[in-house]
């Protein structure tokens, strides 16, 4: 390591230059477009200043989308962590090493599935007439149960699929984290006649505080990528009850009116909000 070598420069610069170009050009472009009035049908836009941003804040669908996105974010992150910690502890507590390996493999499967597949699998399972999940309800009451067409239950039903993918996956990580802990604190707590839940609540989980915060952080980022699930399962409906920000930006820029500039201004706001929030959380978590 003491000798001077060209290696770092030769190895780093191609990758970093490409990343910088690929990341910065679209970002700058997004900002430029957002100050124009471009549409898909009309490639050349005029500079309109902050018009797009101003109209966003009187757009009720945009305000609704913010609310849906925030609900989605809180719902999926919280549920994922609860499931992950719960199942992780259960595996640590009552599964043999062999069973742990099998469970880890099985719990990894949902998250590896393409989200389009996961979304379809569950959409079909929730099908009011032929779905296997809605079947018991239909058999008992004689009524079909259509959770995805009900504005009250649609978002929660889609969130269930997200938590199915990430909660099971993270439970494997929680298990691995618990396995890295030294056994002494557990034994000490048991000698003090602590109940199992007390051991975890007051000893094990506080010791894992930093990695658990990182997990929450990763999930927050991943929860922003809910588009595929929502697109396949509800397309933002019924009405606009599951229309998240990316779904709304997509439909503005693409399906309904091709208002690229308007969609871009939404994307820029999302970019700013997430960058600021995540940089803040990241720096905080590191300290």
């Amino acid at each position: 390591m003491k000798t001077k070598t060209l290696l770092p420069a030769a190895f780093l610069s191609p990758a970093l230059i490409i990343l910088a170009v690929l990341a910065l050009v679209p970002t700058v472009y997004a900002i430029v477009i957002s100050f124009e009035d471009r549409e898909l049908s009309r490639p050349d836009g005029r500079f309109v200043g902050l018009d797009n941003y101003v109209s966003l804040f009187s757009d009720r669908r945009f305000l609704n989308a913010i609310q849906v996105s925030l609900t989605w974010e809180v719902l999926t992150v919280a549920a994922t962590l609860v499931i992950a910690i719960g199942l992780g502890i259960l595996m640590f507590e009552c599964a043999s090493p062999k069973a742990r390996n099998v469970l880890s493999l099985l719990f990894l499967m949902p998250v590896i599935l393409p989200r389009v597949s996961a979304a379809f699998v569950w959409k079909f399972a929730f099908h009011p007439l032929y779905g296997i999940i809605t079947y018991p309800y239909k058999a008992i009451t004689g009524q079909p149960l259509d959770l995805l067409s009900n504005p009250v239950t649609a978002l929660g039903t889609v969130a269930l699929v997200d938590v199915w993918q990430w909660g099971l996956f993270f439970s494997v990580i929680v298990l691995k984290l618990l396995e890295t802990l030294p056994p002494q604190p557990f034994e000490a707590a048991r000698l003090d006649h602590a109940r199992p839940w007390e051991v975890y609540a007051y000893v094990a989980l506080p010791m894992l505080k930093a990695p658990l915060i990182s997990l929450a952080f990763v999930k927050m980022i991943e929860s922003l990528r809910a588009f595929d699930l929502i697109y396949v399962m509800t397309r933002g409906g019924p009405g606009i009850s599951t229309e998240t920000l990316d779904m709304y930006a997509f439909s503005q820029g693409f399906i309904e009116s091709g208002r690229i500039s308007y969609a871009s201004s939404m994307a820029v706001l999302m970019m700013i909000a997430t960058s600021v929030a995540f940089t803040f959380i990241w720096k905080r978590a590191k300290v």
Binding site: L19, A23, I33, R38, I221, L224, F227, F250, G253, W282
Partner: peptide, 27 residues
């Protein structure tokens, strides 16, 4: 900083990348 930059690419909302890229590739 390089590591944080690489990680921060993951913060970019996919729509925010896709919309400008659509315009760029069209152009």
């Amino acid at each position: 900083d390089i590591q944080f930059f690489v990680l921060s690419l993951r913060f970019l909302p996919p729509v925010a990348v896709a919309i400008p890229l659509m315009v760029i590739w069209l152009d």
